[in-house]
Design a protein around this nucleic acid. Structure first.
Lengths: 302, 302
DNA sequence: GCTTACTATCGGAATTACCGATAGGATGTT
DNA sequence: AACATCCTATCGGTAATTCCGATAGTAAGC
């Protein structure tokens, strides 16, 4: 069965006879006749009652007509929506984000995008940074707010830095280092609570690398897979931790956060996307991010 | 655009590449390629991104895929529902009825039919007896409970008698004829209230014909277009009236209804349908009526 | 650099939609 | 009842287009 059969059948119902439908469709009557006979034999039902001046629909034909109309409309809608999507007026945009990185500015951006492009249906996915990379590669999301790319993803995905979250030292409020800025060297003999590498290799590798550059490895006393877990351990007096400044808002009382002097260490957030999936909806989302980049940077991701 | 294009496109999305889709659909890769290029040029959008091991959908392609799936499902549903309609498991049945004729048994029949064929959507239409004939002829209803057919409808429509409502004489309770059965001849000098011919030619013509067969024409003193109007005039003492026995329940007190002796005059109710529209749903409805015919007759239409 | 996997393109074959003519039916008219 | 009219199915032939196999070109992975 092809849409042609449905178009012919609909025309017969609309114009009352095969002959009239043929005239309207600019094809011969015999063509219409043949196609409808094909259709009937495929369905296995008689759709038309030909005995009479006007071709009348059988009971089955009436059922089929209703559904055929819907099918034809659906096909037309498929074309229309696709063309609209090309103009950026319709379609979907799936956005990945993770709360530590995007909690602050993300809702504002999304609200603004909805306002600009009310036709685009947004779907938002809370995924870990590394999950997003896979999702980008196989098209489950169109754009992700994630951590800076590393090989091998960097080859296939494109990305733009949004802002960098400086790494600060978290410690109990009554800690002896809480008086002022902390140097990297001062951490040499500190017990440290680490964020599990599994969950966030960027931070883990960054901290280990920083210490290594000063000739020591961090004295790890505990690990956690969440920032709030890390902060709880710090508050309990297990040790100090290096965390992105953004986590400050998770737990303020009882803790002190101090700048890490002599270090450029930071945890960035980038917008990453798959250039193969670039559509208008995506391009406009990226454009919106670029417009807001300055504001995001100034507010430190908030 | 034809369904073939949609099937091919869906297969590519499902199996990841033109080659894989071709294998699955048992056609050559080149065919798939050509058809998809056709499709893209018709829509005017690029649906696939071919640069890579796997053919990936563009943003527009994803929009199209969602709609194409719906369209294919719709087409399949059209075939399925039509086949079901052929088995009497789906479809619609439009039934015409008029209250005087069908008020009693009609609801029971409808309830029973719904129980037997829950897949059939019923639509019920309250129409005058003669309206139904037109509606039957042009297919607005599939079956009508109406008055016996006359030419020219009788040629094109089929019908079956359901029951006959004997014609009785209505008169004020204190009328001199109220003592017992009334003969036709006794009506010769009675003032008579007639039901307007316009509204019900069967009754009017039947009464006039009956009188004519006894050599007189009825002395009409008043007319009404409704049974309750006729009965009101009778009650007011304008005259007597010949009405079907079924109207008895409209107004009992103050009126007497008496058999009309020596007359076979009756107003029948038939099930009428257009043989051109005969479907399974209709045939089963008629079957149900036949099963209940005895019960309907015995109860006098109630 | 080599192999592999994929798609677009080409000429030709197969299919099939289409056409005009015509026969067979049904309807309505005279 | 004969007739003209309008309709659909069928037939042989034509045109269109889908489909195929082969091939070249391209990106990805080793």
């Amino acid at each position: 069965m092809e849409l042609r059969h449905l178009r012919y059948f609909k025309a017969i119902a609309d114009y009352g006879s095969l002959t009239a439908a043929a005239k309207r469709l600019r094809v011969s009557q015999s063509s219409i006749s043949e196609q409808i006979l094909d259709l009937e034999s495929e369905i296995g039902a008689t759709l038309l009652n030909r005995s009479g001046r006007k071709a009348r629909l059988t009971a089955e034909g009436q059922v089929f007509l209703v559904e055929a109309r819907k099918t034809l409309e659906s096909a037309q809608r498929a074309v229309d929506l696709t063309r609209q999507a090309m103009q950026g007026e319709a379609g979907t945009l799936a956005v990945g984000f993770f709360l530590q990185g995007a909690a602050g500015f993300f809702p504002r951006i999304i609200r603004e995008y909805r306002k600009r492009r009310p036709g685009i249906r947004l779907s938002l996915w809370d995924m870990q940074a590394r999950e997003q990379l896979e999702a980008l590669e196989d098209g489950r999301i169109d754009v992700g707010l994630t951590r800076p790319l590393q090989a091998p993803h960097g080859r296939r995905l494109k990305s733009e830095m949004l802002y960098r979250d400086p790494i600060v030292v978290a410690m109990p409020a009554d800690h002896r280092l809480a008086k002022g800025p902390v140097t990297v060297e001062a951490l040499k003999d500190e017990a440290m609570v680490m964020y599990e590498r599994e969950s966030n290799p960027w931070l883990f590798d960054g901290v280990v690398g920083l210490c290594a550059s000063r000739g020591f490895s961090p004295r790890t006393v505990n690990e956690s897979a969440t920032y709030s877990g890390v902060l709880t351990l710090v508050e309990a007096g297990e040790g100090v931790a290096l965390v992105p400044a953004g986590v400050r808002h998770l737990r303020a009382k009882g803790l002190a956060f101090r700048e890490l002097e002599g270090s450029e260490l930071s945890l960035g957030v980038v917008a990453a996307w798959n250039p193969m999936n670039e559509g208008v909806a995506l391009r406009e989302f990226l454009e919106l991010l670029r417009e807001n980049k300055g504001k995001i940077e100034r507010s430190g991701g908030n």
